[in-house]
Design a protein around this nucleic acid. Structure first.
Lengths: 358, 358
DNA sequence: TTGTACGCGTTATCAT
DNA sequence: ATGATAACGCGTACAA
């Protein structure tokens, strides 16, 4: 049987192995490895020869084999909540962009999963880590009731929460409380003294932080502390409208409303309109998050926003530090929030520079 | 030196190997492998014993090792275009959801990348495949000018395009031309005879298909074929407004406009409003894609939509068939488009059932 | 049921 | 100083 020694071999499906390269370049496998990894202990000429062959055939080392040795996959998992149009909210959209960019910048890959009930219960996230498919996990929009996160962290898997918190898990959050305080201060400066709040559920970290900010500001500014000014909503537009109806039924009626997110604020605007109240003439409304819709509803919505992009980036950096076992000096990063003033709050035409782009 | 034989070993970081399990269950590695893979050629009792140990310590086989043998990674790459708010459009949002669900259902993982200039030029996608990091590639929103796609396909990597086309690459597309025809037919049935079109660039498959549909319908219905009724736009809101200004400058002025996407249609509405024209009183406007905004602008936008979710699902199934080397009988799947009638078209209050959910 | 070769690189050791 | 040899990482598959 004739050996098909050194004639050019053309592989059928474009995938070569280090052995092929070694044979084509007429060196050993280890030499090829040294060339690939740019080792100082290889003759430049040999290296050039090997690299030339690699270039010619488009060889790429099999990551599965490398991962086997390195015990890493180079991949990060991001878990997004399973809500309608996860990606359509500004919130997640921006966050994911930041995560994606940072991940790429740090030379890693990004895998995506939705936090379905099944996903949570089967602790698939933990499995992915144990199977060496991902090196660490990023959870965006996780709820406080998602204990599966803590479970994962407890098992030793690097986890970072984006804009939510859980005991024993590191996180990167926005200054939600400070942002809420700024909203109330602003309303106060416009003369409002009886300000209502449409709060979200306890389950969502940022919502309870915003509630805390509201309470603190109300106390500090000496505003009307009537507990019936706080109504529970469930983040959706409809629940915002319902909460608004209740708030407008109070007497005396509050003159301004701060909703824990934009969707509820938009619902509140609609409810106000359908009750014949003018926004902001009769009641001022402020939301939070600055979702894309905020600038399209009438009147446009005053809101607070954090840079979810920055938050996403910071989270990735944090997670990678974890994975690489580097010392993490800032266990809980905080990103500031900015007030975006639009009509619904009764503002003068204040220029909000960042809006010009659109 | 005493051997630490069969006492329970507790690994520090929760990652066990098949050897650990073999030792703990007092069997060989191969037996463990048989147990894991539910082979018929293993004694049920032995299997139970092994599985018990596996359960106790939370062992999961290392995918890197498995991939090495199987020569697959179980991961699919989806490449999304790098535009502002990629994920915020209904278009991508729905598409990605479908992709994600189908991927999970088929037991695979999903990796995400943005098609940045750098990404395209460095043919990183091809590298990912050659490195066995991904088994195949899905491109959503790819342009006709993205030759890198063809390059990848030519190298033997399974590729499927979502709603765009390229020679030699399989794709899953919506019936864009048929959709456009239906729009024009609808406008015709409302009495319009001089209908303008704001077209997108050649580079985008769906845009040129919509243009083709417009042309065909105009011909077939015997409408005014004036070429100046077709104005080029660039998909953005502003370009839609500019195109609209030109169209409204024609005489006689067209009574209806079909824009190749919703953003341009929204720009057109704004332009019409600022020119003192009423929509749909003075001019009817129809868009395409049914982005989330479509139902929030005033007047709400009549548009056509395909089920991007379905398209995404179909694309994944298609790709997986490719990867598994199954015969693909339908090289180009087509998904139908539906007309969504709202105010901007001057419709009577026609019930559009699907909108009720909101 | 088990021993063992194998998949594909990496790295430590040994030979030149 | 270079390059070759061999062991290794972790499962899988086939022969024994």
């Amino acid at each position: 049987m004739p050996d098909k020694s050194k004639t050019t071999v053309d592989k059928p499906r474009g995938k070569y192995t280090i052995r092929d390269i070694a044979r084509l370049a007429d060196v050993s496998r280890s030499t090829v490895s040294l060339a690939i990894n740019d080792s100082p202990k290889i003759n430049p000429e040999t290296k050039a020869k090997v690299l030339k062959v690699i270039e010619e055939v488009g060889y790429r080392p099999n990551q599965a084999a490398r991962n086997l040795v390195s015990r890493e996959s180079g991949t990060i998992l991001v878990v997004a909540p399973q809500i309608d149009h996860v990606f359509s909210d500004w919130y997640f959209s921006e966050g994911l962009s930041g995560i994606l960019d940072a991940t790429t910048r740090l030379g890693r890959h990004l895998m995506v999963q939705l936090a379905t009930e099944d996903f949570k219960k089967s602790s698939r996230a933990l499995k992915l880590w144990r199977e060496h498919i991902v090196d660490g996990i990023l959870a965006i929009g996780a709820l406080r009731s998602d204990e599966y996160i803590q479970e994962i962290a407890a098992a030793g898997c690097p986890v970072v929460l984006v804009n939510s918190m859980a005991d024993g898990v590191s996180s990167v959050t926005a200054a939600n409380q400070a942002g809420a305080i700024r909203v109330i201060q602003h309303l106060h400066s416009l003369g409002h003294r009886r300000i209502g709040h449409i709060r979200g559920s306890q389950d969502v970290t940022y919502a309870s932080e915003r509630l805390a900010g509201y309470l603190k500001a109300v106390t500090d500014l000496g505003l009307d502390p009537d507990p019936s000014l706080i109504v529970q909503g469930w983040f959706g537009q409809r629940s915002g409208a319902e909460a608004m109806t209740r708030l407008m039924g109070l007497s005396p009626r509050p003159t301004a409303i701060f909703a824990a997110n934009d969707l509820m604020a938009i619902g509140a605007i609609e409810a106000a309109n359908s009750m014949g109240l003018r926004v902001p003439g009769d009641v001022a409304i402020v939301g939070a998050d600055d979702v894309q819709l905020a600038r399209y509803v009438r009147p446009t919505l005053t809101t607070i926003r954090q840079s979810m992009y920055t938050l996403g980036e910071a989270a990735v950096e944090h997670l990678v530090a974890h994975i690489e076992g580097r010392k993490v000096y800032t266990p809980n990063v905080q990103v500031g929030m900015r007030l975006v003033i639009r009509e619904s709050c009764g503002a003068r035409t204040m220029g909000v520079s960042e809006e010009s782009a659109h």
